[in-house]
Amino acid sequence: MAGTAALMVTERAALAQGEARPAARGYGSDPDLVRSYQPGELWPLSFNDHQRRTATALCDVIIPGEGSVPSAGDLKVQDFIDEWISAPYPAQAADRPRILGGLEWIDGESQRRFQRGFVELSLAQKTAICDDICRVAPADSPLHEPSHFFRRFRDLTASGFFTTPEGARDAGYVGNVPLATFDGPPPEVLRRLGLE
């Protein structure tokens, strides 16, 4: 089914890997810790418009908006992912070919199946592709690399989304506020855990 596309992803990943990387330095060992930073401020970003729109669409499939809670795309998680793969650090750089190659693959797969780019697909069509790659596929499967791309993209989307105030609240984080006293878990929690 996706044999050709899978081959393509390998080639393109190799291509992405060989792309001339903009020379960039990290933030160094003594950055200002108090101010806020925006993606693109410390080192140049990588996505072109098409890649950014594809990444945004995939972010929104992985973490859609719900009621008053914005989607990952609304919170510009795609910019964080771009910042991540563009960073001049080894761990982040290792994700770069997988993410760039995967975005090309998913777009190519969309064209192949639905004759439109991923961004233009209906949610049902996007889901049809994502359902095929949302679990890690065996090493001999043509979907092996795409499934690893999806796994990593989901990880990064989660990191980007749940670290925002909106995302943290949505996950159930209610801390980071000053308290006069720390009272420990409320009675309801102790009851649930059999700790009364």
Binding site: A87, A91, Q92, T163, P165
Partner: peptide, 18 residues
């Protein structure tokens, strides 16, 4: 104090610099 990680580069992830 209180800065959440959405304000930090790479959402505060470990790097060789930090």
């Amino acid at each position: 104090m209180f800065q959440d990680h959405s304000r930090a580069p790479l959402r505060g992830a470990s790097t060789p610099d930090k």
